[in-house]
Nucleic acid binder design. Structure first.
Ligand SMILES: [Zn+2]
Ligand SMILES: [Zn+2]
Ligand SMILES: [Zn+2]
Ligand SMILES: [Zn+2]
Lengths: 158, 158
DNA sequence: GGAGATTAGGTTATAATGTTGCAATTCTAC
DNA sequence: GTAGAATTGCAACATTATAACCTAATCTCC
């Protein structure tokens, strides 16, 4: 299981580590972590809530970056390709990956109240995939699981 | 595992059975399966491919139904609430449920080539949910899993 | 069967999300 | 330096989904 989002932690460390892992990964892959791309990654990591592409536009604009939809989508596509962020389809939103570099399915719990998302270990999803491949003869290439509900904090805040 | 979509079958039977189960379920729940709602259900079941809301509009129009987005979305929301259809978030599309009435997570394999979707047994997803609840203290209310890849037919058609 | 409540549908407009196409620029490799 | 590739800027557009407001149908209870 990836780090627990619900425990207090130094979130600057989350951001820094995300950026530094991104740098490493880009070097390895011969990809370029350009200013927009890095800034988008940082903004996605601003907190542990999935963020919409259009939420990023004004923030980029404030900082003098070009801010048209294609800019943001291109940066996000780049980060998705490298496995640095995941897309939460049910929210049309994006969130930083807690263990980029290791290929793995997107698997998250999202709190419907506060919006925070926790990446989950996806071993069980792999089982579903293997089972489907065996029983149906399909070939699985991508996997995503999204759980929705209440996080510990929001359960208490009744 | 729900019926296997990749086996030849009398698809009219799929549609008929979907409609008749819908009728039963609506009676049980005191809900009304109005003409638009039934027709939308039938159109969703036209084949085993997830269908977009906007694909339904012209078809409804042909048949003299009102065809504005709210009409279709209201019908789809109704069917979703009753568990008669599932939403495939990664495609912004909808597909008939193969075993409505029994509460269960949405769990599908979708072929990226032909677009056909196969509903899967979701027991493993429940395990993920229980594990997350135990280890993180979250409360899971909804679950969805989407696998993407190639179906048996499209693998052969190389 | 009629008044009032509830549910469903019609209509128009608009919001939110995502894409295409092309020109200009920047980087990389030779 | 220069050719080719990758990246960015920019404008328009496409797709998906919802808001707001009103009318019509249906249900409930007397
Ligand atoms: Zn953090
Ligand atoms: Zn991840
Ligand atoms: Zn069928
Ligand atoms: Zn189902």
């Amino acid at each position: 299981m990836a780090q627990n989002v619900y425990k207090a932690h130094d979130h600057h460390a989350c951001i820094d580590s995300a950026v530094s892992r991104a740098r490493t990964l880009c070097e390895e892959q011969g990809a370029r972590l350009t200013p927009v791309r890095q800034r988008v990654l940082e903004l996605v990591w601003a907190n542990h809530k999935p963020v919409g592409a259009y939420d990023l536009l004004p923030k980029l604009a404030e900082e003098g970056f070009n801010s048209a939809p294609p800019t943001v989508y291109r940066a996000l596509d780049f980060l998705l390709d490298l496995g640095l962020v995941h897309r939460i389809s049910s929210l049309n939103a994006f969130i930083g990956c807690t263990h980029p570099g290791e290929a793995h399915p997107s698997c998250f719990f999202v709190c419907r109240e506060c919006g925070e998302a926790q990446e989950l270990d996806a071993e069980q999803v792999n089982k579903i995939a293997r089972q489907a491949e065996q029983m149906l003869g399909v070939k699985v290439e991508q996997q995503m699981t999204e759980l929705m509900g209440l996080c510990p904090r929001c359960q208490d805040a009744v």
